[in-house]
Write a protein that binds this DNA or RNA. Structure first.
Length: 256
DNA sequence: CTTAATGTTCCCCA
DNA sequence: TTGGGGAACATTAA
């Protein structure tokens, strides 16, 4: 469900509702949602709500909460418990529900903020991005999906960025010229910013913390558009599998 | 009945 | 050490 633009939208809608609140009690309704003891969160004050790649990081007066949304996770401010509610945070004013149909999401209680993932693509420059890309020897799509390469890009924005940059998803990272690698960074960051402006993509059931859908799915050019004409040249969009993920591209505009 | 879905993570092999 | 392939996880919708 969430990639960088969706996580950013969630953070923006969640922050004003959470910052300054105090956690009264937390209940993990499903065993697989967390390995940590929710009792450790009782009494903690929420001081910040940030995005870490495609994850949500909640800063407390002592410690941190890291929410991985997986494929179908939702953080809903003031949400009522439903059939897929996996965790409930009761606050001094209001509440927060973590709903997750497929249960690929999880919640971790940390002593220190995470630091293991790669840089945020919006925070590095084109040159640093190109350096990282050319340091790898793999398919470009694999690199973009690898959260240790850069954090926040998932299947939708990977396919859309590669289309905009005119790069084949199976192109080898080392064979992408520096100019094209830097251009990929420009296209990727412009795409991510535009998607944030449109409050993310709701392709199935993504909603932000207020329950509102995004609008960027209307602007997708190749993702989930197999057989439809390429918006640039008209030849049919193809679907292949790369890194075990459905991959959409235009064979004419994106050469290997 | 089969396939695919916004994501990780782990194990095995080269 | 790096990278690829495949399976697994759980659930729904087409």
């Amino acid at each position: 469900m969430p990639e960088l633009p969706e996580a950013e939208t969630i953070v923006r809608t969640l922050r004003p509702k959470l910052e300054g609140r105090r956690i009264m009690a937390v209940e993990f309704a499903a065993a697989r949602v967390s390995r940590d003891d929710p009792a450790a969160l009782a009494g903690r004050a929420i001081v910040s709500v940030e995005r870490y790649g495609k994850q949500i990081l909640i800063g407390l007066d002592r410690g941190w909460i890291l929410v991985k949304l997986g494929m179908t996770g939702k953080l809903l401010a003031g949400g009522e418990a439903g059939a897929y509610t996996r965790a409930v945070f009761t606050l001094d004013s209001g509440s927060l529900a973590f709903d997750d149909v497929r249960q690929f999401g999880s919640i971790a209680i940390l002593d220190a903020p995470p630091d293991r993932l790669g840089p945020d693509p919006l925070e590095i420059d084109a040159r640093a991005f190109a350096d990282r890309l050319k340091a790898r020897d793999t398919e470009v799509k694999r690199a973009l999906l690898d959260q240790s390469f850069t954090r926040g890009v998932g299947n939708i924005y990977c396919d859309e960025a590669l289309f905009r940059a005119g790069i084949h998803p199976r192109a080898r990272t080392r064979r992408v010229s520096r100019a094209r690698a830097e251009n990929l960074h420009r296209e990727l960051t412009a795409l991510l910013r535009l998607a944030i402006d449109h409050r993310g993509s709701s392709v199935s059931d993504y909603v932000d913390a207020s329950g509102a859908r995004g609008g960027f799915q209307e602007m997708h050019r190749v993702y989930q558009k197999k057989g439809q004409p390429c918006p640039r040249c008209g030849s049919p969009i193809r679907r292949i599998v790369v890194a075990q993920r459905g991959t959409h591209y235009c064979a004419r505009c994106q050469r290997s």
